[in-house]
Amino acid sequence: MRTVLYVLSALVVMGLAYWAYNQNYRTHEALKETQRLQREIGQMRESLGVLRAEWAYLNRPDRLRELADLNFDRLGLLPLHPEQFGEISKVSYPAPELPPILSSVEVVGEREDTP
């Protein structure tokens, strides 16, 4: 009985040791992975910064103005003018289609006095 107990406890110790080492290795692995990811995030942020700077550089007003001048034939872009403001009420909507007149009675009505 006692021997069985000894053997069992030895096995448990071995199992626990295996588990502990396993956890240790996995922790190290995870740490390495986070480090790699953080490095990657850092690089990504750096390139994001470069891209944002490049975007701002490509969108600088001077360049856009030059491009608008160069492509004037195709795009016809001009600076915004006060005349270009419109009003919703000036937009011409397609007139609603009138229903067909089926009988002459429908077009007979009383004229209302406009106020």
Partner: peptide, 18 residues
């Protein structure tokens, strides 16, 4: 800023249509 040619508040533009 929208240009206001006539600053009269009661001035309205009529609806345009085809």
């Amino acid at each position: 800023l929208r240009p206001e040619i006539a600053p009269h508040p009661d001035f309205a533009v009529t609806l345009a249509s085809h």
